[in-house]
Simulated scan of single mutants.
Amino acid sequence: MAADPATLDALLRAALAPTNLAVRDDSALHAGHAGAASGGGHYHVTIVSERFAGQNRVARHRMVYDALRSLFPAQIHALAVTAYTEQEYRSRDSSRD
């Protein structure tokens, strides 16, 4: 059975104290995919946390995966992660003006 996005949200908030967090359930986009047969969901997480400061992308993803470890593989089959520090996130927004 796939995880409820609220569960991902709560675990990430507890572990990484994000200032901005969006959890998107993309499971419907993968209907019929072999991995979807196991019941695990497909999710995309965009997360902004100062705990990512000084960490490269791989380390940031590990931090997110560690926070959600209890949900793999039964409730999460696939997870896409976009992780920023607050400064990176603000810079990204201002570059879109």
Rank of each mutant, 00 (worst) to 15 (best):
M1Q: 06
A2V: 02
A2S: 10
P5E: 10
A6E: 10
A6M: 02
A6C: 00
T7R: 12
L8C: 05
L11W: 04
L11N: 04
L11H: 03
L12W: 04
L12I: 13
R13S: 08
R13H: 13
A14I: 01
A15R: 05
L16P: 00
A17N: 07
L21I: 06
L21F: 05
L21K: 06
L21T: 07
A22R: 14
A22H: 11
R24G: 03
R24I: 11
R24V: 15
R24Q: 15
D26I: 05
S27I: 01
S27V: 04
A28S: 15
H30V: 07
A31V: 14
A31L: 07
A31T: 15
H33E: 10
H33W: 08
H33F: 12
H33A: 12
H33I: 03
A34I: 14
S38E: 13
G39W: 01
G39C: 06
G39A: 10
G39Q: 06
Y43P: 02
H44P: 01
H44D: 07
V45Q: 07
T46Q: 08
T46G: 05
T46Y: 02
R51L: 15
R51K: 15
A53M: 14
R57Y: 12
R57C: 12
R57I: 15
R57D: 13
A59R: 13
A59E: 14
A59Q: 15
R60V: 00
R60Y: 07
R62L: 06
R62T: 08
M63W: 08
V64S: 06
A67K: 09
A67Q: 07
L68N: 00
L68V: 06
R69M: 06
S70N: 07
S70D: 14
L71C: 13
L71G: 02
P73G: 03
A74T: 15
A74F: 01
A74Y: 02
H77W: 02
H77R: 12
A78D: 04
L79R: 10
L79Q: 06
V81D: 00
A83N: 11
Y84P: 00
E86K: 10
E86I: 00
E88K: 07
Y89M: 05
R90T: 03
S91N: 14
D93C: 03
D93S: 01
D93Y: 02
S94T: 09
S94W: 01
S94A: 08
S95P: 00
S95N: 02
S95C: 03
R96T: 03
R96H: 09
